[in-house]
């Protein structure tokens, strides 16, 4: 057996799950789909005392339209979100980005909430929720609270979720009229973690960018919203050459994570390319 020894509980309710997580005498870890956690266990990079499996709690896997958001339950699988008609219609960036997550055989078990809470800086979903100004809902011993996705990621695979909190849903704002979005990444092989990736959403009104979102992933320790590009583009003429100027300027100033597999020069080049392509494709789709 490759994983280290641990206890396992599969409580039938969130309250019971939170109670286990709140027990300070043991180091507990939430198990959702397990597609990141179980490799970490098998590689013995994680040594929890107890796994708290959310798989037996009812009602955490729905995908529903509520007002101007789509609410994705934490335990909805990535496959379910990728094939959701609701998301294709109202939040098309989510299924588009999910198609880049690992492989179909992983997305069948990997969950939306698991990926968002794991916070891998090379993962697509954390970048999407930050770009779209999504909100996550978490339940802890003191009840429920909401966290803006922009405030969720505090460092490498580290979030502002407390250790006794369970992420229960992700609320994604629905796409507006005149908006387009895109996810573009460069990976060595299909399904691998990207060497650099970008998600973008633009809203065009009367030929100018009314709203611009750009998040780069796999280039720094958290999904990086590129404020310089967003500021430069918002209010500017909605043209590909305007995008190219803004992304070239911003790439100069990027603070890149050291990566032994990708040189800094190449990472900077890739970041510029994926940012430009994502924004340009988003612009084309906004028409």
């Amino acid at each position: 057996m490759k994983p280290p020894p641990f206890d396992y509980v599969a409580p039938p309710s969130l309250d019971e799950a939170v109670a286990v997580l709140a027990d300070e005498d043991q180091d507990s870890k939430v198990l959702a789909g397990g597609q990141s956690l179980i490799p970490l266990l098998s590689l013995r990079l994680a040594y929890p005392d107890v796994l708290v499996d959310l798989g037996r709690i009812d009602g955490l896997g729905s995908i529903e339209h509520a007002d101007d958001t789509v609410v994705i339950g934490a335990m909805a699988t990535q496959h379910e979100a990728e094939t959701s008609h609701l998301l294709h219609e109202l939040c098309p960036l989510v299924p588009e980005a999910l198609a880049n997550v690992a492989h179909p055989q992983i997305r069948s078990r990997g969950t939306v909430g698991g990926s968002v809470a794991h916070g891998d800086p090379a993962a697509e979903l954390p970048a999407v929720v930050v770009a779209l100004d999504a909100t996550v809902r978490a339940v802890g011993p003191n009840g429920t609270r909401t966290i803006a996705a922009r405030d969720l990621y505090s460092g490498m695979m580290t979030t502002t979720l407390r250790e006794d909190e369970v992420l229960t849903s992700v609320e994604i704002p629905t796409v507006r009229e005149g908006s387009g979005s895109a996810c573009v990444e460069v990976a060595r092989r299909a399904g691998d973690y990207a060497m650099a990736g970008a998600v973008a959403q633009v809203t065009v009104e009367k030929g100018t960018f009314a709203d611009t979102r750009l998040v780069l992933f796999s280039v720094s320790d958290t999904p990086a919203r590129i404020d310089a590009v967003e500021r430069a583009l918002t209010g500017a003429e909605a043209k590909p050459e305007v995008i190219a100027r803004a992304t070239a300027a911003a790439a100069e100033d990027l603070d890149l994570l050291a990566d032994p597999r990708v040189s800094q020069d190449y990472a900077r080049h890739l970041a510029e390319v994926v940012a430009r392509r994502a924004l340009t494709t988003a612009l084309e789709r906004s028409a």
Binding site: L31, G34, I38, P39, Q105, R109
Partner: peptide, 21 residues
Amino acid sequence: GACTVLLDGKPARSCLTLAVQ
């Protein structure tokens, strides 16, 4: 992918699934 099986009709890596799950 060598360990892929079908779990309730869906493909699953049996190395990334605990037996208890």
